[in-house]
Design a protein around this nucleic acid. Structure first.
Lengths: 252, 252
DNA sequence: AAAATAGTGTCTATGAGACACTATAGT
DNA sequence: ACTATAGTGTCTCATAGACACTATTTT
């Protein structure tokens, strides 16, 4: 099709890409960042860690913890670094969520952000410089859409950039994963009651669940181990404490 | 915790990020590309469009169609542009898959690639400069892992970069979506038999399905409209042709 | 008529929700 | 004894797979 003798001015995009690859000056490059949606469940509600921006743009608005990816670190390493330095948690569930890269999503310049989802047990999330905001969505099931963040005083917090979309996608993804993946345990302490586990599921799904069906289904997964111990500090009959016993994946 | 009077040499990563944002020279930037996994079903097998690399690195190996993202275009726009210019298809199903960014995944330099998944009806995929390779995976269900590409002669094609991982993830994602999303129709012509629809499902899932159960389940979705017409050019009883009638999402 | 596939009816097993019930701690 | 929540038994309904059967086209 194409004349192989065509000189350097060819418009073949493959060749353009090849040349650009060896001469970084040919194409300008975007900045690459990562933002982390850190979620936990408190008092039956899904909550997210947000930080109020001290500088323009979007000064005063609330943003997800984020920062630029360094040239020598993997994307997940950058997310883990931010999680440790900005949020103060380590060793938690972390999974890539989606990459947001519309031109103009940041008014300063082209910033492509690889969003990550982190799930943390409530006791391990002590946000000092930021806030824990309750997450609410306008949609049911897995319809999807932006989310709102409700501050401790009950008022909606103004969200910076496209972070309301990122947060909404995190909720949508979490609801989807709940059906076939043991993600809820990542938001619980090592020992927990079945009621606490159900409460996590209900907070994620945004709807009440039937107790008998929930217990049957979860116990049938074989991923729960009864400890024989009971919870304390309750003014009614205490529930038994369970542990998460992950299934062995036999890949032989 | 931190002294607010600390001068400019602070190691607060938030401030570092802020400064870097306004001075592009502070941090070097990675290149951002997109690679597209273009899938269809031919003769009951999942096939992918691959292109043999003419240049180093990985010269002679087979790669997904890809290229750099321009500064003024959205990520999905870049994927659509590549799909049009390199593969020659337009107006097809396209969805972001995952972002691969390990340092060293490209030996030339740091290239972060946002992978996309495109689904195409078989008749619309006429790869001229590349090849259609059958996709095979070593795992069942949604376990995940790299995929193999089998050329027309039955031999496995050597895959460039981490594209075997990208391809494997595309299969895994597609299997997951099939459970709750009408993706199979994106790989069929406008009119198709129920047997063809089942064949697409079987190719994606990598396993045989029960005919009565499949028909009941799909007809019960209400997304299928019988046309009353029959297929032709078959040497047995012809099957009825159906159309995909997407459900109206009522968000009122 | 034979061959081949389209399309259906029935039985059964599984899983989930609804509901009502029993059990056990603290006060 | 009372209260509040833990935990269970049973019924019913929806869904999926297995299997066997009938229907319809071409050769």
């Amino acid at each position: 099709m194409t004349d192989p003798q065509t000189p350097a001015q060819t418009v073949d995009p493959e060749e353009q890409a090849f040349l650009a690859a060896y001469d970084p000056g040919v194409f300008p490059r975007p900045s690459v960042a990562t933002d982390v949606v850190v979620l936990t469940v408190r008092e039956g509600r899904l909550v997210v860690a947000l930080y109020q921006r001290a500088e323009h743009p979007h000064r005063g608005r609330w943003a997800l913890p984020g920062g630029f990816v360094r040239m020598d670190e993997a994307l997940s390493t950058a997310a883990r670094r931010l999680l440790r330095d900005k949020v103060g948690v380590q060793g938690v569930f972390l999974e890539q969520l989606y990459t947001f890269g519309d031109p103009g999503r940041d008014p300063r310049m082209r910033i492509i952000t690889v969003a990550y989802l982190a799930l943390v047990p409530p006791a391990r999330l002590q946000v000092e410089k930021g806030a824990l905001a309750a997450v609410e969505v306008d949609w049911a099931g897995e319809a999807g859409g932006p989310a709102r963040a409700i501050g401790p005083d009950g008022a909606a917090l103004p969200i910076a950039f496209d972070h309301a979309d990122i947060l909404g996608l995190a909720v949508q993804r979490l609801r989807g994963k709940l059906r076939y993946s043991p993600v809820a345990y990542a938001m619980l302490p090592p020992r927990f009651t079945l009621r606490a586990l159900q409460s996590v599921h209900e907070a994620i799904l945004g709807e009440a669940l039937s107790k008998p069906a929930f217990r049957r289904r979860l116990l049938a997964t074989g991923e729960l181990r009864a400890t024989g111990e009971l919870e304390s500090d309750v003014d009614h009959r205490p529930a038994e404490l369970y542990e998460h016993a992950p299934q062995e994946e036999d890949a032989s």
